[in-house]
């Protein structure tokens, strides 16, 4: 018996899962080592630029902001929202464009599925990779913010696991959506959705400025939940509302994983 068969017989693998999502991370690291750093840097720099432009530019005009009963400096107000944005950007970059490439151009997933790996290994592995990127972005952002003296308390450290959850949710959902796209034109939809969501979800101002019905729409979208979740931990302002945000992301993660692994099977194991 060959070593490969021994491994396969020892593990209780199903048609969907071989129990090896970590090999996707190994592959991600090998490819990342020799790839260009430019997209990584831009993804990280974007929220920092927002912070500088709006925080110090607009902040001087706006002054203080009153949100949730407390009045705080404007730059301090937008920092956690931008952290959530940063986590989302990192996760989305890998789970949409990179996944699209591997699905349709390089056929990497097809190759992987001709080995004992299952669709759930691929979904979990790729989403974890995107999650790690989201986490690295948010850590970088937090470092910059701390250097600028904008972290209110040690509570802000808890914003990191919160941001990870946000990254995980977007990665999972992003990969699920991408698995249905066949052309670059369709991929354009992602930007059409992301840009307004980024601008209007309350990272730059409280959503209480909107009419009631707009506010309700925003509250359905994931980024608002992400921003509120990160903001709650950032200021140590933990209320029962936090549970709703967490539940929102747990549901997003579960749905994304389910859809992605089913879709991979439908695409490559038919």
């Amino acid at each position: 018996m060959s070593a490969a068969v021994e491994v396969a017989e020892k593990k209780k693998s199903s048609a969907m899962y071989a129990g090896r999502p970590y090999v996707l991370l190994e592959r991600g690291w090998l490819a990342f080592r020799s790839s260009t750093w430019i997209p990584v840097v831009t993804g990280f720099v974007e929220p920092v630029l927002f912070l500088l432009a709006f925080g110090y530019g607009m902040g001087n005009l706006v002054g203080d902001v009153t949100a949730g009963g407390t009045t705080i400096d404007y730059t301090l107000f937008i920092a956690p929202g931008l952290l959530a944005n940063s986590a989302m950007n990192g996760a989305i970059y890998d789970s949409t464009w990179n996944v699209f490439w591997k699905l349709n151009e390089s056929k990497l997933y097809k190759t992987m599925l001709s080995t004992p790996l299952g669709p759930l290994d691929i979904a979990l592995g790729e989403i974890s990779w995107a999650l790690i990127r989201g986490l690295v972005y948010s850590l970088g952002f937090l470092t910059v913010v701390t250097v600028l003296g904008l972290t209110p308390s040690v509570w802000a450290l808890l914003a990191i696991p919160a941001a990870s959850l946000v990254a995980f949710g977007f990665a999972s959902f992003g990969m699920a959506v991408t698995s249905y796209f066949k052309t670059y034109q369709q991929m354009g939809f992602i930007n059409i959705i992301l840009l307004p969501m980024t601008l209007f979800s309350g990272s730059l101002y409280p959503i209480s400025v909107y009419p009631d019905w707009v506010e309700k729409i925003i509250m359905v979208l994931p980024l608002w939940h992400g921003i509120e979740l990160v903001r709650a931990f950032w200021f140590g302002n933990i209320t029962s509302g936090v549970l709703v945000h967490i539940a929102y992301f747990v549901a997003m993660i579960a749905a994304g994983l389910f859809v992605t692994s089913r879709r991979l099977r439908a695409l490559f194991l038919r």
Binding site: V7, A8, R20, V23, E26, R27, T115, P116, L117
Partner: peptide
């Protein structure tokens, strides 16, 4: 070659 072997779970 290396990563393909890893897909099979080989040491």
């Amino acid at each position: 070659l290396f990563i393909y072997g890893r897909y099979f779970g080989l040491p």
